[in-house]
Design a protein around this nucleic acid. Structure first.
Lengths: 159, 159
DNA sequence: TATTGTTATACTCTATAACTATA
DNA sequence: TATAGTTATAGAGTATAACAATA
């Protein structure tokens, strides 16, 4: 059963270099594709003075008004200590607000402002377009399949 | 046409938190899956005193005897300056050898030793097993589909 | 006691610039 | 003049430990 034609032996193949063993590891493959997309996203987000991580924060805050920092850190799988400066900046720029929660004065409710929500929407559209530079090579079926399969892999986060 | 049943609205969903906009961006999704796999690979490689990057180097050198550092840097898409200490360590541990190339004395031919090749093989097997902790949720078809689709996305590196 | 936000700090990764020896 | 390997260094990104306020 001869495979259609697909990749002859393996990946890279710039000047006869092979990475056939690495090529069979998904971690390696995922990273390579991610590293193709990441700089594109970075570039378009920078046009709005956003980094990938601050855009992610703004996006989740937009979709979850009233979320607190430890929940946000949890959602983005990062340390809450590293969130502080990011949240500070988003607040200073008037993209989000921090509001005391009366019932638990340790926590602050984070909410996106109108400006923040609009910026999020514009930025998200730009990132989507940027991603298409890479994704463009896929037809609709492949795109759906990829997202579905990634979804199955993401299921177990807590383990 | 109602989709089978799949993900209700979006991702995370730990405590009502939604990331529906981010969820539609593949960069975000790829990173999340990669970040699930990476620590597992890191852990098993550490058992052999290897980091992900040093394992990658050892693996490519094993498969490409005589490769030189700048080619290796190119294959792994990293700066050649950052390769130096890694190559140094692999050589000190007797996993690879550096040999002057008579025709161009600026370059050194890198070749894996027998020990290096064996370590690579053992380590690769471990990583494969570790990845299965995540990949296990996929059937064979999905696994093939994922690798095929990633292959299509990787095609354009030079652009 | 435990948790939230915070600060300070360390550690890893990656990027850049400059040097040397060769070509 | 350009390239391979090297060095040193700077900058992100991430992780850890400890603290004050609050629960």
């Amino acid at each position: 059963m001869p495979k259609p034609d697909e990749s002859p032996d393996s990946g890279t193949e710039k000047k006869g270099i092979t990475d056939s063993v690495l090529f069979s590891l998904i971690g390696y493959r995922l990273k390579r594709v991610y590293m193709q997309i990441q700089p594109l996203a970075q570039r378009v987000l920078a046009e709005n003075d956003l980094r990938v991580v601050s855009f992610s924060c703004l996006s989740i805050i937009t979709d979850n008004p009233g979320i607190v920092q430890s929940e946000l850190a949890d959602a983005l799988q990062m340390e809450r200590s590293n969130l502080v400066v990011i949240i500070d900046e988003l607040e200073e720029r008037g993209l989000i607000t921090r509001k005391k929660i009366p019932t638990d004065r340790r926590r602050y409710a984070l909410t996106a402002t109108l400006r923040g929500r609009h910026l999020r929407d514009r930025a998200a559209a730009k990132v989507r377009t940027a991603e298409d530079e890479v994704l463009g090579w896929l037809d609709e079926d492949d795109r759906d399949r990829l997202l579905t399969i990634l979804g199955r892999l993401e299921r177990r986060t807590a383990r």
